[in-house]
Nucleic acid binder design. Structure first.
Length: 515
RNA sequence: GGCGGGGUAGCUCAGCUGGUGAGAGCGCAGGAUUCAUAACCCUGAGGUCGCGGGUUCAAGUCCCGCCCCCGCUACCA
């Protein structure tokens, strides 16, 4: 049985989960659920990245210790995962004891390889921005004070730090990109990474002494790991590293991440692993952002919408469907209430929901049992051929990390099923040739069954209900069951609507009426 | 500035190595139908394929120039 270890990035819990977090979680959940239904042995990891200066400061500002602070914040991320039906096998926290051990074990391997050395990290530091700036980013003002790009004063700071010999990995990384171009996707991201590495790599500062909210560096009191060593190693922790048996899951098949952190995953991470003598993940996929009317959501723009509010309003599954279907995975996409309403009403209410409803209600009127197959004419054969190709199309989309393409193919099938009903008009056939009408309904029902099975990764709850309505046993809902027909004569429950039409929320009294 | 990607119907986008009248979905208009969630089905309107040159029997599809948009260009994650 083929194995599939897939991860999301871990989230920094210094604010509420937003639609971007939801998007990545839902997309990765689709990948994991798809692989499970396809009979693969799946491990799906998601979680939170809880160390670092910002968390420590936020906790201090709140007057509580960091651990209590993150406990409170992490709850919201777990709640989102629960509400959005994210089928993770583990929700990892970088504060988990086994993660601390894993990060330290990785560190030790890098140290043993001779790739870590103690030096000084120096640069222009802005206390207000909590950031170091390169010399050329700073400006000396007329009054002699030096300021950073944000206009805040900077001062020369030096700090003892452990460094990682990243420079040593320039050639190995370029080799990796050349030999395994699918390592970073989309391909445009690989190009960027290649260009970045080709400029040459400088060694990387990987520890800090200025704060202590982090994983202690083994054998170096006062040092905590720079957050990326800590954060990236979560993928190893999730596989069980360094305990024996971690090879069952490591290396990961796929890291799903946002396009903004591709460099850390496509450059630093493989370098760390190469240093540690560990195998590399098969693939890194950097997805795009979900924008609101072309802009990133921000508190100042006043357009922050909680993903759970959208799930609540439109339904979890329709919301998931929208995210997966409406955005080409890898590109930026936009959401708006109008876009969700249009997509959900057109494809879920009008097409899929109505298809199920019209088919099931005709069956109900004809006795409420799975009708017998009729003769397969040219239309039925064409339909069967189309249905038969669906799985391989979806598998290809899964392999390419393109849930949108899988859903497009399934919805195309839904469209053809509606067309099929219109052409064969079983409601008319019923009057002249009831057996033929039954046959048409049976063909339609089987087509719906296939679509429902393949749509489960996107809409687990609604498709479970649809499969219930079709009388598909719970142990006949995997991809290997696609060719297992319904049982003729089986009694079906009374049909109920699955996808009511949706409307945008009531506008909250626009303040820009007469501007 | 350097490197890379992109500008095609109102909207979101397909259009591989140049070749039958430039496409899809949504939206819009009309029609048909009534099994169904005012849904499904059919038809239609709508495009100087960013701008200007050039190569070619033939160019969204190749070449040159220009305009605009986006991404990357290391230690906040």
């Amino acid at each position: 049985m083929s194995r599939y270890y897939v991860t999301t990035a871990i989230n920094y819990p210094n604010g509420a989960p937003h639609i971007g977090h939801a998007y990545e979680a839902v997309a990765t959940d689709w990948l994991a659920r798809f692989a499970r239904l396809d009979g693969r042995d799946v491990r799906f990891l998601t979680g939170t990245d809880e160390h670092g200066l910002k968390i420590a400061q936020a906790a201090r500002a709140a007057g509580i210790d960091p651990r209590r602070y993150v406990d409170g914040m992490v709850e919201r991320f777990v709640a989102m995962a629960d509400r959005l039906a994210i089928s993770r096998d583990r929700f990892i926290r970088t504060t988990d004891p086994d993660h601390v051990r894993a990060a330290q074990a990785l560190w030790q391997r890098m140290a043993d390889a001779g790739d870590l050395y103690l030096d000084r990290y120096a640069g222009w530091y802005s206390v207000r921005d909590e950031a170091f700036y390169a010399e050329e980013e700073t400006i000396v003002q007329p009054d002699g004070t030096r300021v950073g790009p944000t206009g805040t004063p900077v001062a020369w700071m030096e700090e003892e730090s452990w460094f990682f010999r990243l420079s040593r990995f320039t050639e190995p990384l370029l080799d990796l990109y050349a030999r395994q171009p699918e390592f970073v996707q989309p391909a445009s991201r690989l190009n960027e990474m290649r260009a970045f590495v080709e400029r040459g790599l400088k060694d990387l500062s990987v520890s800090r002494t200025s704060f202590d909210w982090g994983v202690p560096v083994p054998g170096a009191p006062g040092h905590v790991m720079y957050v990326w060593v800590d954060a990236l190693s979560n993928y190893l922790t999730g596989a069980g590293f360094p305990e024996s048996g971690y090879e069952r899951w490591w290396p990961a098949d796929l890291h799903v991440i946002g396009k903004d952190i591709v460099r850390f995953h496509a450059v630093y991470w493989p370098a760390f692993l190469m240093s540690a003598g560990l195998p590399l993940p098969a693939r890194i996929f950097g997805h795009g952002f979900v924008l609101y009317r072309g802009e990133k959501m921000s508190k100042s723009a006043g357009n922050v919408v909680e993903p759970l509010a959208l799930a609540e309003h439109y339904g979890v599954d329709p919301f998931r469907f929208f995210l997966l279907r409406a955005i080409a995975f890898g590109q930026d996409g936009e959401w708006s209430h109008e876009a969700i309403v249009a997509r959900v009403n057109a494809e879920l209410a009008n097409d899929l929901g109505n298809l199920a409803q019209r088919t099931l209600s005709m069956i109900a009127k004809a006795g409420g049992r799975v009708p017998a197959h009729g003769e397969a004419g040219p239309q039925e054969k064409a339909l069967a051929e189309r249905a038969g190709a669906l799985l391989s199309t979806c598998r290809a989309a899964h392999a390419a990390v393109r849930p949108d393409l899988a859903l497009e193919a399934i919805m195309d099938m839904v469209g053809h099923l509606n067309l099929y009903l219109s052409e064969r008009a079983p409601w008319s056939l019923r009057k002249t040739d009831p057996a033929a009408a039954d046959g048409v309904l049976r063909h339609a029902a089987e087509g719906i069954r296939r679509c429902a099975i393949l749509l489960q990764p996107a809409m687990p709850e609604r498709m479970a209900r649809l499969l219930d309505l079709l009388g598909v046993p719970e142990d006949r809902r995997e991809f290997k069951d696609l060719d297992t027909d319904l049982q003729t004569g089986a009694e079906l429950p009374a049909p109920v609507g699955l996808f009511p039409r949706v409307e945008p929320p009531q506008p909250e009294r626009e303040t820009s009426q007469a501007v």
